[in-house]
């Protein structure tokens, strides 16, 4: 089974859900207003969305901003803690990886997979682009 949201109809706290729509790696995902990005992703059944240094999947661990396992790229902003960032309608979320792109040794510009703007970003500064 995957994580899920407590059904609104039976939830003892009697909440009112207002839907929001985000994308995760281009795929549309519906959440409800007020959720953290981690909440949206978990409630959509996703348990993991990042790859650690060994290439293995990672998701939420501490849930309160301490472990940095749940990092995401949001609207081009890298390394956002999903458990801390409130989801907003229209967020474009991309997953991140720390898997090495090749073996040991330095990566060269030729085999770099990233596209980071080489020109000054528009003000206010935009973060660099994320990875695959």
């Amino acid at each position: 089974m995957s994580p899920r949201l407590v059904r609104r109809e039976t939830d003892a706290v009697r909440r009112t859900d207002r839907p929001i729509d985000i994308t995760v790696d281009g795929e549309p995902v519906r959440g409800i207003e007020g959720q953290s990005l981690a909440g949206v992703l978990l409630a959509s059944g996703r348990l993991a969305w990042r790859h650690g240094p060994d290439g293995a999947p990672r998701g939420v661990f501490c849930g309160i901003g301490v472990c940095f396992d749940c990092l995401l790229t949001v609207d081009g902003e890298r390394d956002v803690r999903a458990c801390r960032r409130r989801a907003r309608d229209g967020d474009e979320v991309r997953t991140q990886t720390r898997s090495p792109h090749e073996g040991e040794g330095p990566t060269t510009p030729e085999n770099s997979p990233v596209d980071i703007p080489a020109t000054p970003p528009a003000q206010p500064s935009r973060p660099q682009d994320g990875t695959s």
Binding site: M1, P3, R4, L5, V6, D11, V13, R15, G34, Q35, S36, A38, G39, L42, A43, L47, A48, G52, A56, P57, R58, G59, V60, F61, C62, G63, I64, C67, C83
Partner: peptide
Amino acid sequence: WQLPGVFTAGAAQAMVKGERVVLGNQ
């Protein structure tokens, strides 16, 4: 302990009480 699906107790608490997200069924 690094597998997805292993959470701190605090994560479970934060998600259920703070967002009404349940992390698992079993």
